[in-house]
């Protein structure tokens, strides 16, 4: 089971710099202000606290991610990263002949 990934919560890549993490945090707080969405804000804050900590990143780098214990788990990592395809594939799907 893949745990809540702080990178996904903040929407930053794993190699994001400290400045990028901070920008994502500020943007996230704008979207989930603590008074209107306390749960979302709490999630964001936990994710930001973890990514801010250089030991967290070094732990992952040195000892591997705790949520990955077998090769097939690796595919699960991609599930949290859905891609936005733009209109083309959807229009192709809508415009094709009947199923």
């Amino acid at each position: 089971m893949v745990q809540m990934d702080p990178y996904d919560v903040l929407g930053v890549p794993r190699n994001a710099s400290a400045a990028e993490v901070r920008r994502a945090w500020i943007e996230g707080v704008r979207r989930h202000p603590p008074d209107r969405d306390p749960e979302g804000f709490q999630r964001l804050r936990e994710a930001h606290d973890r990514l801010k900590d250089p030991w967290f990143r070094s732990t992952e780098r040195l000892f591997g991610r705790s949520d990955l214990s077998s090769l097939s788990d690796l595919a699960e990592v991609f599930s949290g990263k859905r891609r936005w395809l733009g209109p083309e594939p959807w229009l192709r799907l809508i415009g094709r002949s009947e199923r």
Binding site: S72, E76, K81
Partner: peptide
């Protein structure tokens, strides 16, 4: 097939990757 392709693309190619990893 066509829907599966779009689904795989949305999921970042997870379906085919998962199959190959297994």
């Amino acid at each position: 097939l066509a829907e599966g392709r779009v689904f795989d693309a949305v999921e970042g190619g997870r379906g085919s990757l998962s199959h190959r990893l297994r």
